[in-house]
């Protein structure tokens, strides 16, 4: 049983599919995220695929600040992801609202709406940092699943 569980966990960490959602960022972070897919970084080496659809995704990458208009979209997308799932907040805006945090329509960082697993700081973060963030998230996922008591919570 334990072996099967470990096997499943390994498979999960070997094939994280990303859903990238831009909550109204300045596109700086988004360009860095997409740079990960280019031959220079080639995230497909790690089995990472950028999918366009929450039903297929394991990791939700969110860039930009959450505002009152798009927070519903964000939670909707998150609800449509089958668990186990991760949320990775990208960039200064995703972490805290960044330079927009005082704006009248802004809710703030991603954590105000969703349970964030990994924060990747930077304005924008480098592609290496983003890949590192995803990998950290996967390690967290594995840790959670190896401790059965925490699993339910997750």
């Amino acid at each position: 049983m334990q072996a099967v569980k470990r096997f499943i966990n390994r498979m999960r960490s070997k094939s994280p599919w990303l859903l990238h959602f831009d909550c109204g960022s300045c596109n700086g972070c988004d360009i860095e995220i997409l740079a990960c897919l280019t031959p220079v970084y080639d995230v497909e080496r790690f089995g990472i695929i950028n999918v366009g659809n929450p039903f297929h995704a394991d990791v939700l990458l969110v860039s930009g600040t959450v505002n009152h208009r798009n927070k519903k979209v964000l939670t909707n997308l998150h609800a449509q992801m089958p668990s186990p799932k991760l949320v990775v907040a990208i960039g200064a805006c995703g972490l805290s609202g960044g330079i927009f945090r005082e704006a009248y329509n802004v809710v703030g960082g991603i954590h105000k709406v969703l349970p964030v697993d990994v924060y990747v700081p930077g304005c924008p973060p480098k592609p290496e940092a983003i890949i590192d963030g995803v990998v950290l998230g996967l390690q967290k996922l594995q840790r959670l699943h190896e401790q059965p008591s925490v699993e339910k919570e997750a």
């Binding site: 599919w17 497909e44 089958p82």
Partner: peptide, 28 residues
């Protein structure tokens, strides 16, 4: 495909990893 795009590409067994992962995900 990856090599044609001058990338390294995933491991050979990647499709099996993907399918195994999907099989054990929550069913929505």
């Amino acid at each position: 495909t990856a090599r044609m795009q001058s990338r390294i590409g995933p491991p050979l067994l990647q499709p099996f990893y993907d399918v195994a992962k999907l099989l054990f995900k929550e069913s929505l």
